[in-house]
Amino acid sequence: MITVTDLRKVYQQGDRTVVALDGVSLHVDAGQIHGIIGHSGAGKSTLVRCLTLLDRPTSGSVSVNNKELANVSDADLRTARRRIGMVFQHANLMDSRTTAQNVAFPLELIGTPKAKVAEKVSALLELVGLTPFADAYPSQLSGGQRQRVGIARALSSDPDVLLCDEPTSALDPKTTDEILELIKSVRDRLNLTVLIITHEMNVVKQACDSVSLLEAGRIVEHGDIAKVVADPAGRLSQALLPMPGELPDDLPAGTVLDLLYSGTQATEPVISSIARTFNTDVNVLAGSVEHLGEHQFAHIRIQLPEGADIDAITKHLLGNGVAVTVKETK
């Protein structure tokens, strides 16, 4: 597990004082994949550099399995860093080394005996599915294969935490899926704590158990996917289950409702139950249905004709575990 407490990073840029991280706290349990999402300039890069201790935070602490990392002496810094394996956006492999030699790099640093290195490297290459490419150089590999090497290399120092910095941002959609599946499968096998820093909501949808929204150096929303999605007013919920903002001008008279529910929360087929119970027409205007983590979520916009008993219908829906927002009609 990893715990970050009140992490601040302030630096001087000429006369200006820039607060890049303004008290970031988060906690991720072992075996969880946590996404940190933010636009460029939100402080993602600074957060990565502080978590890996490439930059020292101004204040605050980072601890992995209750061992403090951020405030250790320079001498202990290298050992501390080995507790966090890192995967980079562009893999950052050494071009002069083959796949196997790249994966062996962290082991060489601490003088691991050759036989042990060979054994470990071949196990890791098998884990990421690159055994036939052990002797290939990075320039001979595809982007997805390079990222697999990067993951194997990050795992070779037996870290407790895997920190992925935009791991799929340079990859095409199909390769992105493969890399995210690989990250999930190594998490399952090694019970790793995984932190994925990204600007792609898709990555959060596909891989994360919980998520934080980083904005201007602060975490403005966070929680399990199910929890953040359930709040229709939340920014993450709106990003994960998008809904067109404006209602069309030529909409016939009636009342528009936005319904948000998960497959497990709603006890009845929601739309047809309204129609049956209240003997009314229901017109679906827009919606998105997503599989997030283990649950299916739906965000549906419906219109009810004039004269429908909105209060009773809302009450019925709330009773069934559906969040309802009544939209303004023109």
Binding site: R78, N92, M94
Partner: peptide
């Protein structure tokens, strides 16, 4: 710089960065 960062994150000493990354690369 990414390669040097990667080597540092993996726990290289500065000397190891020079010998195992800068010069070979």
């Amino acid at each position: 710089a990414g390669k040097i960062d990667a080597a540092l994150v993996m726990g290289s000493t500065r000397m190891q960065v020079v010998r195992k990354v800068l010069v070979p690369e």
